[in-house]
Design a binder for these strands. Sequence first.
RNA 1: GCGAGAGUGGCGGAACUGGCAGACGCGCUGGACUUAGGAUCCAGUGAGGAAACUCAUGGGGGUUCAAAUCCCCCCUCUCGCACCA
Length: 839
Amino acid sequence: MTADTFPFRETERKWQERWKALFRCDTAKTDGKYYCLMMFPYPSGDLHVGHGRNYIIGDALARFKMMEGANVLAPMGWDAFGLPAENAAIKNDIHPAVWTERNIESMKLQFDRWGVVYDWSREVAACRPDYYRWTQWIFIRLFRAGLAYREAASVNWCPSCKTVLANEQVASGACERCGSVVSLRKLEQWFFGIRRYAERLLDDLDRLERWPERVRTMQKNWIGRSEGVEVSFPLEGMGETLSCFTTRVDTIYGATFIVIASDHPLAAELLRRGGREEEGGAFIRHVRELQVQEREKAESTKEGFYTGCRAVNPATGAPIPVFLASYVVMEYGTGVVMGVPAHDQRDFEFVREAPLEIPVVQVISPDGSASPRLESAYVEDGIMINSAPYDGLGNREAMDRITDDLASRGLARRVVHYRLRDWLISRQRYWGAPIPMVHCSSCGSVPVNESDLPVLLPENVDFHPRGDGKSPLATVAEFVKTVCPSCGGPAERDTDTMDTFVDSSWYFLRYLSPRDERRAFDPELANRWLPVDQYIGGIEHAILHLMYSRFIVKFLHDEGLLAFDEPFGSLFTQGMIYRNGAKMSKSKGNVVSPAPLIEAYGADTVRIYTLFIGPPEKDAEWNDRAVEGAHRFVNRVWRLYTNHRELLDAGAAADDRVDPEALDEAGTALYRAVQVASKRVRDDVFERGFQFNTAISALMELTNELYLYVERNERFRAGDGAAARLFRNAVRRLVLLLAPMAPHLCEELWELFGNDGSIFRQGLPEPDSRYLKAETYTLVLQVNGKIRSKVEVEKDAPRETLEKLALEDEKIKRILAGGTVIKTIVVPGKLVNIAAKLA
RNA sequence: GCGAGAGUGGCGGAACUGGCAGACGCGCUGGACUUAGGAUCCAGUGAGGAAACUCAUGGGGGUUCAAAUCCCCCCUCUCGCACCA
């Protein structure tokens, strides 16, 4: 005979259908609102169990919150623009829109199968015109505010595929598809001026207390604020000066050369004046090649080329050579660096290989006297030397004085630099939101009239790469050709599309009024429902998506459209699921598909295992065998019902009143186990941050207790009424506590118990705090920190009693015999430790 | 190189403010029920030892009556950033 198992196949569909109404959120009611948001996925078609973790955590949380009486908003949508749709289209000859919509349908079914439910009436998809219309609208708002501008910028170009490559298509300087070396091409592109928000994006990180420290640190480093000084170095025999950014102006007396980026605007001019144009050009090309090649290789070399020109060190008055160098980049600071070999490791390495002899002048030393020979750059603080008027000062103080003195001569100013770049949003791609701009020969770049939005993506487009670096949209004459919204003359549309991060930087606003045809979002609803109470997603979006969303929300706030200026109040980043030591991916062939697992074990088993696998914020290794443990647990809970149908069926189950005072010893133990489990589940989920793994283990323990109670309690076995009521009470509470994690099982049991309405409208059991501690506990007796004995004591026994018990314990007495007790430490509830000198 | 996180049985992991290391689960062992068990139920399961005990939280030091937990040094792994001037 086989034991009863939960008939999950019959049960799952039934509840999945009924839950759709349960998750329909009435946003007009904001009392107890809880906006539970999971990052919307790219509709790639197939979800694996690693993706599932995100959604299962979110779904369990939403259900726990519902049981706490919250009005939960849990919407879902699709980050549906992007490269894979185009790739699939090229490969399978299917239109990206068709491919995407097909995938969306299939993924919705996959969510259903997991028992993961959303308010689908709010579904949005970034690729649908009623959504991207408003993405375009945001672009125009940014443009009007002066935060969207056009500038020439480099793109990755594959000379053999003859196409522009996205950064993710470039692997260590080579085209991901064909392996040829990627080169750079300059194109006119659109940028968003996120740098103007750098300071606020940085400062406001401090307010995001409920974000992981890790994410805040990553954003902080990404913004990369750095305080320093810009110093002017006049070029010898020329009118111009070179402006250097430095954070170590205290070392300026040791600046014995200048290095500039090879793509610096003055580079060519300097080479010409130095009479070294030809060789210099070759060097510039060489550096450009280095930049696209392997990073480590490029970084280890400190190659330089003498321009033939010299600049004057404004502090010493000495002429110093100007070099082009591979290690200076135009993107940071001013693209010009003063070379201080004695105090900067890179400069130190540079002079060793430099084509000219360059003096190494030490200007800071630990003790005020120069070191005989530097083995490496001295980068610590110290005493100033070789720095004329500043000798003897601490370098920190000298830094201020030198800055002031140079500034008074008009040669320096204090500046703050950020590493954060403006956001390049142009993509030479088909499958994205068209940039709603028109280029007119007389008016320049003009935004499309808002009433003419959306600028629709044309459908019949050949999106195979064309070889000229332009977007496929450029081939569609009827798209390109238009009239200027400003002067009415003939003009051309911008043919690039927007980075998909633009789409995802505001979708959380759209969920509140997804079908609104008059505006992107309803400010009133948005102000009432945001910031998002809980955002859940992968750590891979720690920087870009989260930073861009913060930027857009701050911008909309500044436009007076939103009252808040941070989108996500609390952020949770779940860990990834690995298998065979690697991240799950199709290319590695280690994906675990949920469908066969759900087929074999049921959705609740897969959910329980996924939540039980480990702390949700940490990475975890998927173990096929361990899934069976979750399955056993689900069935053990089910059998509590089937083994005791007569006690739990409708009618009987209603009466679960328990008088804890009147219970026998085993009964009290079970009653207490229920209270402990209730407390632990609540704490693990709400207080300790979604620790579903330990919450489940608490419920496994309670289940084990119930089995033992049935097995061992004579009164229960004899059909005692009070024992039966206690059993019912315990099982009902177990089912309530488990419901958010194993919803199909528990909803079904709840109905079998004779209840009307969803279990998710029930409150979570409150622990009876009088019964969280046992009447007695095991007091540990230690001598010199080592456990020597144990004794059962009453829970409220006073310290004196505990000490007395310890000293009178036979084992302890034997050990202490002949020795001297130095000190006795009594920790009520835990232990007594006797520090003693033993014989 | 810089920054962050981690290292605990055969495995995944517990241990919340320093206080019985190994909860819970997987696996394994034994038993019960059974024609049978790969179902189910019960029990055992860190290592060594016959036992008393001893040793065990990456390694080494330290603080403390007491350390997985706090401090110092070192090793390994993962992630992020990376010529940041």
